[in-house]
Design a protein around this nucleic acid. Structure first.
Length: 471
RNA sequence: GGCGACGUACCCAAGUGGUUAAGGGGGAGGUCUGCAAAACCUCUAUGCGUGGGUCCGAAUCCCACCGUCGCCUCCA
């Protein structure tokens, strides 16, 4: 079995064949830290997260780099309007991004390079491009990439440069370029804007340049996988390819992966569309982080994903179903012999999961395999055909698959507060005395404090749930 | 105008030539339970936008039409 991924450049599935055997190098376009990221942004980050998790689960070593764009027009504008420096604004939103990412259980990338910390690498790229005749300087000191010097331009986005409708929706010529389609590598310093004094003049880097410089700095001139949202295909990634390959003369990226947009209200979620939802707002409304994560990763990455109260509600219910099984397995005890039917069921689930994920990260089918395992194990619990050791095996299997999904409750259950533990003890005592009125009262009280209590043959068991709204 | 996706049940969403069209959510009924909850069982698309065509056979391939979305601009 091999992992196969859909490459945007060729439009075909490609077998993963890392440049260095067993080691996959991945670069993901990260956030521009001018404001809080929205959950549409996080769909693309979590898609990369699932890719990285899966490849590691599959036994690959993975080096994952995600950039933080900490200098650009929006950051400069935002900082100016607050009367602070861009460093302060960026630092604030980097902190927010990392907090949201942690909340959503995104794997921390191995490197989180910041643009402003890599100016020398960018300048070097610009110098090389100038030397090789792929770039030119304009009167104001900016440097542009000459698209006419790069015949392959437009291949990734399948755009014909001659047919590009430049100028229709955007002011065509603010820097007196030779060709309106040329893109900026280095922006000449302007009064009131941050700038760096460098060998290519005083100014600041263009957006596309930073990703080329930082990806190659950490992953080499050629690396395996580059991810991002579809909206980055053009011009961002197209420009990255042009400037990187023109500078190095080597193939830049082996496989381009792009995830489709998160949809809300029938349109892509975007700040410009005015239909964004942020992590903090959703959490404040009572949505569990794990449910949000599930809602964002549960559909195939190349199809538009509808995001709504209904989708997050369904995700929360799905996660609760998993939680219930985890709680049941943790509480389960039976001294019957091991169930010989269980290992094959676990093996089949694992196999189906891997087959699905190998096929271009087919997470829907992978989740189906997980839930088929869930139903089967629930059946065996109800029939009490499994042993205590079997319950542990089933739980281990679930946790193993969850290394990829990241939606199960934490293994190290944080201990209950003494007050809650006492309520549980009181309820157990009431039940032993068949005092149903006291038992129900205590159940209600626990529920109001976010603890669902259920009774089973294995005794009373509890799990954390959201506190009911209005409670 | 160019390019590219997609339209599968009440909702979300797999399936891309061949037994009964995954899975999650929701709904209905049932089992279990002191009551609940959870779980389990049964049911909820003879049909996959519409109309043609190819084929022994199509949700899956081809054509046309209708509809939706995305990119060609900053954007994950």
């Amino acid at each position: 079995m091999t992992v196969r991924l859909h490459d945007t450049l060729t439009g075909e599935l490609q077998a993963l064949d890392p440049l260095e055997a067993g080691h996959v190098r991945i670069y993901s376009c990260g956030p521009t830290v001018y404001g809080p990221a929205h959950v549409g942004n996080f769909r693309s980050f979590l898609f990369a997260d699932v890719l990285v998790r899966y490849l590691r689960w599959r036994g690959y070593r993975v080096t994952w780099v995600m950039n933080l764009t900490d200098v650009d027009d929006k950051i400069i504008r935002g900082a100016a309007s607050e009367g602070i420096g861009i460093e302060a604004l960026a630092a604030r939103h980097i902190e927010g991004f990392l907090a949201d990412a942690a909340t959503l259980r995104m794997t921390t990338p191995d490197v989180l390079p910041r643009a402003t910390a890599h100016i020398p690498q960018m300048v070097e790229l610009v110098e090389t491009l100038l030397e090789r005749g792929h770039a030119y300087r304009t009167d104001d000191g900016s440097v542009f990439f000459r698209i006419a010097s790069w015949p392959a331009y437009g291949r990734l986005a399948r755009l014909d440069p001659d047919a590009m409708r430049v100028g229709e929706r955007v002011a065509a010529d603010e820097y007196s370029k030779d060709d309106a389609r040329d893109f900026v590598l280095w922006k000449a310093a302007k009064p009131g804007e941050p700038s760096w004094d460098t060998a290519v003049g005083s100014g600041r880097p263009g957006w596309h340049l930073e990703c080329s410089a930082m990806s190659m700095a950490y992953l080499g001139r050629s690396f395996d996988i580059h991810t991002g949202g579809v909206d980055l295909v053009f011009p961002h990634h197209e420009d990255e390819i042009a400037q990187s390959e023109a500078a190095t003369g080597e193939p830049f990226v082996r496989t381009w992966l792009h995830c489709a947009h998160l949809q809300m209200g029938g349109r892509k979620m975007a700040k410009s569309e005015g239909n964004i939802a942020r992590v903090s707002e959703l959490l404040a409304s009572g949505l569990e982080p794990r449910a949000l994560r599930y809602a964002l990763i549960a559909a195939h990455y190349r199809t538009g994903l509808s995001f709504s109260d209904e989708s997050t509600g369904a995700a929360a219910a799905a996660v609760a179903r998993l939680d219930a099984l985890v709680a049941a397995l943790a509480a389960y005890a039976s001294d019957v012999p091991d169930d010989p039917g269980l290992p094959p069921v676990i093996g089949a689930a694992r196999e189906a999961f891997a087959v699905a994920m190998d096929d271009d990260l087919g997470i829907s089918a992978a989740l189906a395999a997980v839930f088929e395992l869930v139903r089967d194990v629930n059946r065996r619990i109800a029939a009490r055909t499994i042993s205590t050791a079997d319950a542990r095996r089933a739980l281990d299997a679930l946790r193993d698959l969850d290394r990829v999904l990241g939606v199960l409750p934490d293994a190290g259950e944080p201990a209950l507060g003494a007050d809650l533990a006492e309520l549980l003890d009181l309820r157990a005592a009431a039940r032993a005395a068949r005092d149903w009125a006291a038992s129900d009262r205590l159940r209600d009280e626990l529920a109001a404090r976010g603890i669902a209590v259920e009774d089973s043959r294995d005794g009373q068991r509890w799990r954390r749930v959201g506190v009911p709204s209005g409670a």
